[in-house]
Every structure is written in C-alpha cells, then in structure tokens.
Nucleic acid binder design. Structure first.
Lengths: 243, 243
DNA sequence: TTAAAAACATGACCTATGTCAAGTTTGACT
DNA sequence: AGTCAAACTTGACATAGGTCATGTTTTTAA
C-alpha cells in the first residue's frame, strides 16, 4: 500500500506518541517510514502469526484485537487484549510458538520487519532501551497475569480487573463481558455470578461503567502494580500502605 | 567481598559462558569485574527483592533457588526455578512488584547494579541485543507457563514438564516432587495421583529419573517450544509434525 | 544401625467452577 | 417501531482437584 503525505504525517504523529519511540527524534522516525508497512483487518478476522509474518513488530494504529492460543481440544486462552497505541512484537517469540490475533474491531496494524528493528537497535541505543522497556513491561504484565490466574478466585480476579480499569481507564469497561470472562480465565456464567457477589459489596457495572457505593470498595482488589496509576496511591488514604 | 585472582578467572570464565555475554570480548568482560558484586546464601534462606536490592541483575554462579510470589492468604506461586548459570533481572520489574527468592541449595549470586547494566546497554549494541534476547526468552517462557496452567489438567501439566526435562536435562528430574507440584500449580497429592495415571501410560519416575516403556510415550505431551530441543524434532518420527 | 524427620502415597470427602438448559435483556438492522 | 440474533443471567447438576487424615517410604543425622 502506498502512503500519501497525509498518511505519513499521521503516522509520524502516531509513532512519536508511542513510548517505543520516546527520545527518538522526528527526523529519525521520518527516515524509517519507507520501511513501515500497513495492513487492515476487519472485525472477526483471524490472523495467525506464523513463520511468514511473525518476525515483525506490530503497532496498533486503530482498532482492537486479542492475542490467543488454542489447544488441541479447542480451549482458548487470551494472552492479551491489544488496543490502539499498543505494540506487540512476535519477532521476539520463539521460532516455533504459534499465536493468533482475532480482531475485535476493524483494525489497522503498522509493522516493521525484524531486520529494520534490529538495525535500529544496533544503531540507536535509545531505541534499544525502548525495546528493552517494552519487553520488561511484557514480562511484568505476564507475571501479574500468572499471579491473578493462580492465586485469585473468580470474584477476586474480576475485582482485580475492575480495579485496574478504574485506575487506567476511568471506570469505562473496554471490552464486552464475555470477552472479559475469557480473558480472566472463566466462563461467562462464572463472571455473571462473580459480578453478583461484587454487587453485594457495593461494586456494580452500569452500562459498561464501574459504579462504587462509596468509591473505595475496589481498593480491596487493588495491588501495588495496578495501584501505581491511582491518585491516592501511597498516601494515608491508600489501603495498600495502611495494613 | 574482595576478589582474589583465582576468583576473577573463575568469574570471567563463568560470565563468558553465559548467553548474556555472547559476542562480548574477554577484555570487556574483564573491565566489568570491578562492578561485579557477590553474595552467598544458605539453603532455606529467603531473600526479598525489595527496593534496596531489586534494581540489579543477578547471575546464579552456584546453586538453585525459586522465585516466588505469596498472597495475603499465604498461597505461594512459583514464578520460576532458577538454576546455576541462569540470570534474573528484577531491575526490569515494576518498581512496586514484590518477589522473593527462596534458596533450595546453598547459592552464590553475582550481580551488577542497574546503572552498570544500563551503561553497558548504551555503549555496547551487542550487549543490548543480549539483554533483549534474555527478556524475550522470559516473555516466551511466561507465555508457555500461562498456557500450561490455563489449558492443561494435572496429568497433562506433569507430562509436559517431564517431556521438557527429558529433552533438556536427559531425563534427570532437577527438583523434588513437592517443589515440582508447587511449580506446576498443584498439591503434592495431585502430583502423586497424576504420576499414577502416567505410569499406566508407560511413563515412570525411578529414582528421580524418567523411564519410558518404549521411549516415545512422552511425545504426546511435547509441544513445539520444548520440542525444539529434541533430536527427532521435525523429522518424520516426530508426532508434532505428523498429525 | 537406628531413630527421627521429611517426603511421598492413598483414601474419604468437600468445594469452586465448569457444563447444560432455559429464560431474559440488549443491541443491530430493517 | 419491530424482529432477530447475540449477549447475558440464573438454576440444577457434574467433576477436577483441593483438604484432611492416615499410613508408608526415603532421607538425614547421630
């Protein structure tokens, strides 16, 4: 796909807003544009990161998709829900690891090839640092996810997710309930029941928005990683530092 | 702790054998030694990666420990079992993430401070690439672990672990059964029962060593990521490519 | 070599969460 | 506005795997 001037401007703006391009000068980003490829996907489409299109780094320009693994029995695990502005780099996965993207909304992905990224890492220590930060964040988020799955029951998992949404997304649920259930590793039925229990504690969902009775109920489900986005984090009001 | 000449030699040999120092010249490694610190721990000791000693990168010179998270109820999750020659970099974790190391054997850790590592990343693109590879491996291994926990039952989890040990470690179990149970997210009782089911399929543990009836039984539990270490991987004998 | 402790195995029972089936609500498209 | 499909809820029931109690084997230490 050829890029018009307007597209180029848009892409430069988009890229320079990403933390992956923090401290990278505009001229330098501009010089990368010829290597930038674009691909559009429709809602519902499935795209497999196989040997031909895994060794890349993808940037979500517009849209939303889920990164999933499916086993022989057909059980699905959602590794991550990727939103506009987020990056995934299957080029850093094992050569033999199969993952698929299933698009939740119409989506436009931008991507660079592995060589382009590796060249940049070699030539620009700041970019290397940004890649390192991105991977470190993936590690962190996977460790937290593992913990949530392993040590929390359904109600706690849901509470944890709502607490994180409340901090990061102003209480607006970014995904549907059934997708959320799958992401949290439970059935929609269990999510429904968990929500019922939470509503007894004063935590409700009204029209995809989180509503708390006093506004503090979700604090019980917060942790230090998601809490660092909260405006009372670390203060005397924050239960995480008062026990 | 001061380092003798002999220690220095040992450490240089040790470091240059790590994939983290691949393609790094011996002189360069030598120049880093003044920044290298050493700490010894005894079996059973617990060490918390808190604010004072998290911003580092640790290299396991001798010994074995488990990286764990514990929740309020006291349930423990093993994130990783770290063996001699392996690296962990809590400096790349979130500022607020608490993890502990519990030493399974007497252990000697070497470490560099965050500044030392970051300086090296800045100055040496090859080292930056090695750090990126290390983090990418962490991401990969956490994704696989998540999949194992989420999509496999106890028997399959154990089978998967035995298959990976069989490929990577010549069939010798590197940890005790109760530690393994905890690592696989089940109770020792469940592991015992899972082992019983596997023995009906011709897979047994004799004196911490895996014994298979025909030698192919574990292939059923293999996947493409752990299989890439196997000597029949990808050939017509390999069930992963024959279905 | 033996005693004590730790690790492991086995059975009975319990519980969280999955499955299935039958509604009910919501939302998208004429 | 009305229709249909999808999303969600609720109840009855099933089951994998946890808990607890007891017995056996292995390891450690004197």
């Amino acid at each position: 796909m050829n890029l018009s001037n307007i597209d180029s401007k848009n892409h430069i703006n988009f890229l320079s807003g990403l933390s992956l391009f923090e401290n990278i000068q505009a001229v330098e980003i501009e010089s990368m544009l010829p290597q930038l490829k674009i691909k559009k996907y429709q809602k519902g489409e499935i795209f497999s990161f196989d040997i031909n299109n895994r060794p890349r780094l993808y940037l979500t320009f517009i849209g939303q998709f889920k990164l999933t693994k499916i086993n022989e029995r057909g059980d699905e695990m959602i590794l991550r829900v990727v939103n506009a502005g987020e990056v995934i780099s299957p080029m850093h996965f094992s050569h033999y690891y199969d993952v698929s993207a299933e698009f939740i909304k119409d989506t436009t992905l931008l991507y660079f090839s592995e060589e382009t990224i590796n060249k940049l890492v070699k030539e620009n220590p700041k970019f290397a640092k940004n890649i390192i930060n991105m991977l470190a964040e993936s590690v962190q988020s996977l460790m937290v996810t593992a913990e949530v799955w392993r040590l929390k029951n359904t109600k706690e998992r849901l509470g944890w997710f709502l607490a994180s949404v409340n901090n990061a997304n102003l209480g607006k649920l970014p995904i549907s309930k059934s997708l959320l259930a799958s992401y949290l590793g439970m059935t929609p039925e269990s999510l429904s029941r968990a929500l019922k229990k939470l509503s007894e504690e004063g935590i409700k969902l009204e029209n995809k928005t989180i509503v708390q009775k006093t506004g503090k109920e979700l604090c019980e489900y917060c942790d230090k990683v998601i809490g660092s986005d909260c405006n009372v984090f670390g203060s005397h009001e924050c239960p995480l530092f008062n026990s």
